[in-house]
Design a protein around this nucleic acid. Structure first.
Lengths: 200, 200
DNA sequence: AGACGATTAGACATTTTTGATCCATATGTC
DNA sequence: GACATATGGATCAAAAATGTCTAATCGTCT
């Protein structure tokens, strides 16, 4: 099979916990090589720099997370439950693994500084998936956007913004869950289809 | 009160978890200063070097642990229970805090390399306390060393050696507890007073 | 055995970080 | 004001990290 991909994956598997434990700055290529049980020289055969390695890891993590997000939206259930699950997957995939603590901030900073494109692309894709889900829900009359005089694109942006705001102000634990639940309840009320308004 | 002592204690309080988390090598004076919420310059007003700071922390930790060991031996109960508790206190005080993992080894190495006198003195004191406890137990006829044809000093040395060996071969978790329990049972049998042999 | 690619240890120059010191400037305290 | 103490920043030597390179080693294949 593709040996290079498998090799880099093994390295990234070993590197992730090291980055999580020590942060980007305190993690050395020697640390990663030791964790991956290869030599430092071999590390540079797969990745040309520490930054490139980190970017690859960040990309893989984002891809994996976005797959979970998409799966959550594709499952059955109400549009609200699916969006809630998608948001939870997004948060757990990109925040929780960096176990809340001293390193979380430093790692997040490194991510947005060294690989801003990856993080931004993931956000764009999340927005896109939400727009698609909301559009379909509107077509099937599960939700009604006429009351709010809005569109799927605008509403999806609000959802993402709310997610960000809730995460920022509150912590990342059960408080975040509560905030999301409240917001989703609000969304449900605002988009409830008006019975007997379907047509003439 | 003694302001310098209190100040250094505050610094050591802040430094210990940093050392535990990152190990000696990866911990910088800037890290410690940040954790203690003082400036690097102030740090050097209390400790002349990183090594001196580490030694002070190690010494304080050893003192605290040895107090617990002494307390365990001074409590009531059989000599075997008290020795078992003392050994457990010794292990938990100097090993467990360095949460089992990557840093434990590095920290232990730093301790025996940067402050070998402190560790050795603690061991000597442990031996001394055990000798005293065994001597008193012999006086009160709780144990009988005649069967083994030995003395408190020799027996205490064996206890320490066994503790070391068990810790070294087995891990530090419940396996250590089992090993100690077995050894103490052996010790109990070997030192059981011979009934009706007290004297003419 | 010999050839081959992959992997490695190790030396290396360069850049970055850290340890440690110093000073000029706050920040209170008497 | 006089005094002690804390701080940020400049500074310099020492240590460590990055990234490159070469020679040696290893395993595999024929």
């Amino acid at each position: 099979m593709n040996e290079t991909a498998s090799k880099t994956d093994l390295i990234l598997d070993a590197a992730l916990p090291v980055f999580v434990r020590f942060g980007f700055r305190k993690t050395t290529m020697a640390d990663i090589a030791r964790a991956a049980k290869i030599s430092r020289a071999s590390l540079y055969l797969c990745f040309n720099s520490k930054e490139e390695l980190f970017r690859a890891g960040s990309k893989r993590e984002h891809l994996s997370t976005m797959n979970n997000v998409k799966a959550a939206l594709d499952r059955s259930g109400s549009i609200f439950d699916r969006i809630t699950a998608a948001i939870r997957a997004f948060q757990e995939g990109l925040i929780t693994p960096f176990g809340g603590g001293h390193n979380a901030e430093e790692l997040f900073a490194a991510s947005t500084e060294l690989a801003p494109d990856i993080a931004l692309e993931a956000r764009a894709r999340l927005l896109d998936l939400l727009i698609k889900a909301l559009s379909e829900a509107e077509k099937t009359r599960e939700i009604d956007l006429a009351t709010l005089q809005t569109q799927p694109t605008e509403l999806a942006a609000l959802v993402v913004a709310a997610m960000d705001g809730i995460k920022h102000t509150r912590g990342a634990g059960p408080e975040f869950e509560g905030g999301i639940r409240l917001f989703m309840a609000l969304l449900k009320l605002g988009t409830a289809p008006q019975l007997g308004q379907a047509g003439p």
